[in-house]
Design a protein around this nucleic acid. Structure first.
Lengths: 203, 203
DNA sequence: GTAATTCTGCAACGATCATTGCACAATAGA
DNA sequence: TCTATTGTGCAATGATCGTTGCAGAATTAC
């Protein structure tokens, strides 16, 4: 049963995907409504009717990024499926590295890079992504806390989680600067030595 | 001997410092000329007479950031004065961490954060900072190459340098998200285990 | 003094920003 | 067919963007 009124003349999901790519590539403020409408193939009026305003569109795009297989779900998936905490962290880093450096997509993580530079009017957008980053950190922290026996009791789980997140953040900048997938994997090789050393030191 | 013509009615260096802080805090495009003129205490016409245009002002601000003791010089200084490559990397990370989380300054590194989101018109600004980041990486790489005997011959200096830069980049994001100095130092504790493991693995 | 030079305040420039009012089109249910 | 509801194209909104022309002020060199 379709809703009453004139039906929408475009594919809302496809339009949102176009907006996602643009926001991901350049960030919130650096993308204008006119660029969005052109990329989405719709008029400004339709954009506002369908998505509310620019910020709501951005938030929807971020949500889509977060729940799209092969993009935002990689982290959660890695944390859930890996058999050990160490493997979970390594899988999170490596799977994301592949995504960050994928030649067919914007480089780096949208959640890390898409709202770094905002004016005073749009601080809320920056805080929105900051909160998403914090949520990822908490997922990582929770995975470490659930690793019975694997991590010695004296280990600083907060420090371990922050370390993993720091490397993850850094990978986004590296990818944006043009780093290759193999280069990122070598970085992760080193990073996992850091994990091992940290865990061993607290044994 | 002063130059002919009407003398400048403001302190150019002080005005540049004000612009630096603003650009550092929010980034290139998120700061408007009117905000700059207000912070610098001058009219728009004086800004353009003294600095040329917004991009030139930004570049000068970045140069100032780079050559200011306690800001951009920390990295170079750490690389030059530390007795070993390992100590150089650690000092670079720790000294920068102190700067990134300094409560009296904008959080994170200006070179890493100030031109992440730019429109198509200002790609040159992003590339300008990208080049500065690359230059830092080359300094790190050179310091590693100069560490005779300390690092085994089979070690991948590029990977080690990229790893150090990745952690350094990540620290900026962490600081921007509100991480404490002690939190950053704990991250660096873990990161240095990564260095040791990487070096030992290639022995 | 005069000329040359540089800086500054004012007021504007055209362009673009995100957003919306309005008339009309296109559907559903009655 | 009539009403209710929703989407769309057009054209505009006021605001702000970075930048500049111009007249006059302030200095040096002569």
């Amino acid at each position: 049963m379709p809703a009453p009124g004139r039906p929408r003349g475009f594919d809302r999901d496809a339009a949102l995907r176009s907006a996602l790519r643009l926001f991901w590539e350049r960030g919130y403020e650096a993308v204008s409504i006119s660029e969005l409408t052109e990329a989405m193939g719709i008029g400004a009026r339709s954009l506002y009717t369908a998505f509310g305003c620019k910020e709501e569109l951005f938030r929807e795009a971020v949500e889509l990024y977060g729940c799209t297989p092969g993009l935002g779900t990689a982290t959660e998936r890695a944390l859930e499926t890996a058999p050990t905490a160490r493997a979970a962290i390594e899988a999170m880093l490596r799977d994301n590295a592949e995504i960050y450096a994928d030649p067919g997509s914007p480089r780096g993580c949208m959640v890390v890079l898409a709202a770094t530079n905002v004016s005073e009017d749009n601080v809320s957008v920056r805080l929105f992504l900051e909160q998403r980053r914090r949520a990822v950190r908490e997922s990582v922290r929770a995975r470490l806390a659930a690793a019975e026996g694997e991590i010695p009791g004296g280990a600083d789980l907060d420090a371990l989680a922050d370390y993993a997140m720091t490397v993850l953040f850094g990978l986004s900048v590296q990818a944006k600067d043009g780093a290759s997938v193999t280069g990122l994997h070598k970085v992760i090789d080193a990073a996992m030595f850091g994990w091992d050393g940290m865990v061993r030191a607290c044994a």
